[in-house]
Design a protein around this nucleic acid. Structure first.
Lengths: 147, 147
DNA sequence: AACTATATAGTAATTATTCTTAATTGTCAA
DNA sequence: TTGACAATTAAGAATAATTACTATATAGTT
């Protein structure tokens, strides 16, 4: 469970980044970001829209979708790797890794300093500029392996 | 460059898997699989369709799409992690890892026994059944880092 | 309070995927 | 080799996801 303090720190970061990029802080954007922070399930734009429309009934899906893309552009959320389905967003910007259930598709975050510190093969680091390293595990989650 | 022999082995595997799953070997399916094997670029269903329609002009996109999904279901291709764009297919079923260019979106395969052998944290292996482990690196490819 | 660049709602268009149907085809067993 | 049957196909249409457009509204600043 995340503390209220950490949440506030993230909101601060959100304000700061927005200003840095000359972006306006609008009620919609704030609501979208808060909804993202609350979400524990790597939601799609449509998920967020459905949750937020209860509070701001006349918000448009386009705003939500565009805003989420903007967020990931300025680095306050990540787009999570998926498999050709709708994009999934992840507000956790700390280094972390993913376990994905091949049956139900749910994605579980986990931390591992060993995985954080894997060393990139020379073959790759010579040719390319590596910005992020992430391990993706796949298999069956606890619910699905009972089936 | 892959040898003709290895290609034939893969075709054999394709026939075998198809029979195992009670699937028919049709000219369309064979052509789709051959096209996949030739591809070095993790193509989308649409890519494959565009290439194959030159040889089988009246094949439908639906057939290509459905066949690719079937292939990944019976384990003769993989769907590669992406970011909410079209699905991308990968005929290489050996263990390997991906580098993805965040600028142009191209995906480069690479091998690394270190990455193959990373050990899954207890936290995860206790709760879940891990079937595959993959490292996804992100950054700029050689072309894009000049921009 | 006014100005201005940016953001919004609403709508429309585009792209990707899946479904439905009737006709066709591969496979297997006689 | 042939016939029967179940699987597969093409084609069109439906659905889902994404992106684009524009007149209006708003945040942030003066």
């Amino acid at each position: 469970m995340e503390s209220k303090l950490q949440q506030n720190k993230k909101i601060e970061m959100f304000y700061q980044r927005s200003k840095e990029h000359g972006m306006k802080i609008t009620p919609q954007r704030t609501a979208i970001y808060e909804e993202l922070l609350k979400a524990k399930d790597h939601p799609t734009a449509d998920d967020i829209y459905k949750r937020i429309v209860k509070k701001i009934p006349n918000i448009s899906f386009d705003t939500v979708n565009r805003t989420l893309l903007t967020f990931s552009k300025i680095g306050i959320t990540n787009v999570v790797e998926g498999y050709g389905q709708a994009k999934r967003y992840d507000p956790d910007m700390d280094i972390h890794h993913h376990f994905r259930c091949i049956h139900c598709g749910s994605i579980i975050d986990f931390h591992s300093s060993e995985f954080d510190n894997i060393t990139v093969p020379d073959e790759i680091s010579k040719q390319f500029t590596v910005i992020s390293k992430k391990v993706v595990l796949e298999g069956l989650c606890s619910k699905c392996r009972k089936g």
